[in-house]
Design a protein around this nucleic acid. Structure first.
Lengths: 236, 236
DNA sequence: CCAGACAAGATTGCATACAATGTTGGCAGG
DNA sequence: CCTGCCAACATTGTATGCAATCTTGTCTGG
């Protein structure tokens, strides 16, 4: 039995298999089932999804573009292992882009989108009360989805794609450098941001988002511990 | 004789051939030797560069990710043909990102980087005086390089990559919707921006960049002329 | 006992063959 | 003359085989 069989069985099984594998792998990386540094063997992945290496290579190449996978010539593909410096760049980028997205979203948001946000927030707070790795993963996902939903409301497909990449990479960074493990708990920044959106208060949404990013980054320990190369060697 | 033979012959001929083909194609698209809508036949490109379709596909996938090429399943790859709406999104994104890049660059720029900027500007103004399609292409390139140089000075690899994509896509947009053809001539915005950088005046550099983007966008005619699908059909 | 060379195995890079799909031109029927 | 079907062709999607490269374990010489 293959992974795709047991996970999906909708009408899109025969659609774009490379894209499907890419999405599965991305999910696994983003919610930390695949640790940074893990080797992604082409043949192994191919067997797992019941496709040839050709298709796997396309999926891995796509993930390499997104910065979630690092490929080395004649050595293969590995789950990315961002350095502290790369981590800082991820958050610097988010600080630059997301406030603008929030401003645009506040101007354009519709009532039905507000309802979607509410439902998402509800799920999120429910998950924060639960225990266990599954709930934790779902919480990480929900937290990222909030930011992606915001970007989609802003109505710019290019910025949405940039945010998809940044949110995914943030998840990797938190996995590596997060102090409390529970990255964004404690605050309910998301609720505050939603309130600003409902009030169509762009500047306030923008400011809140900036401090939200500060909160996330404050939970990181980015002191460069030169032993990362070693740590990577130990991971698989 | 193949294209690579006549263009390059350095020690990196056997390096990463997919990346080389990608770069050649991107250059051709960005300085408008390949018109939007042009079909990129895998076998044809492969023959041209003397590689198999496997390698060509990797290059095309990379360009598709950057938004310079659009692929349709079982139909192939085409040079992207951005709609007016996509064009607006490109410039909205630049308006959001580039001022922040300028601010960061103003804080970090070194004297040697200033010298590089000066040299680039000198080339640029020289090219603006010349005639002919070759000089025109070089001018387009130089103009884009100014923005990429700025991004590299800002010292954030992620933002640099975002800007590479946005600058490339801007070139496509200008090719399609530029009014005067000579996109950025008339102004010497770049010189003003460099002056602000030299003065380490981040806010001023930021503001100047914003008005510079306004100038570029003002030269566009983005009225939706529903005949674009037809136009695309005529291109190849 | 250690260092370095070397060979065997594993893995990726690439080319090519075949299958699946879309396109195009012609032909028959109206 | 026009419309719709059908077959031949062209092009992409995928699997697989082989060559190139890297890794790893072993052996030999010091």
């Amino acid at each position: 039995m293959t992974l795709t069989d047991q996970t999906f069985s909708g009408p899109f099984v025969a659609e774009d298999r490379a894209a499907m594998i890419r999405d599965h792998l991305r999910d696994a990386i983003v919610d930390r089932r695949l640790a940074p540094g893990t080797k992604l063997n082409e043949a192994e992945v191919g067997t797992l999804f019941d496709v040839s290496r050709t298709v796997v290579r396309a999926a891995l190449q796509a993930l390499a573009f997104e910065g979630l996978v690092r490929t080395e010539r004649n050595r293969g593909a590995f789950v990315a292992n961002p350095t502290p410096d790369e981590a800082r760049q991820v958050f610097q980028s988010r600080r630059l882009i997301e406030p603008g997205i929030a401003r645009a979203a506040a101007e354009r948001i519709t009532t039905s989108e507000i309802a979607t946000f509410r439902a998402r927030l509800h799920d999120e707070s429910r998950l924060m009360g639960e225990r266990g790795p599954t709930a934790r993963r779902a919480e990480i996902h929900a937290s990222g989805d909030f930011h992606l939903l915001l970007a989609s409301v802003a109505g710019n497909a290019i910025l949405l794609r940039f945010m998809e990449e940044l949110v995914a990479r943030s998840s990797l960074v938190i996995a590596l450098y997060g102090r409390s493990g529970a990255s964004s708990c404690g605050h309910n920044d998301h609720a505050d941001i939603l309130a600003a959106l409902e009030a169509r208060d762009g500047p306030r949404a923008s400011t809140l988002l900036l401090t939200h990013i500060d909160h996330i980054e404050a939970d990181l320990d980015l002191r460069t511990t030169t032993g990362l190369a070693l740590r990577e060697a130990l991971a698989p």
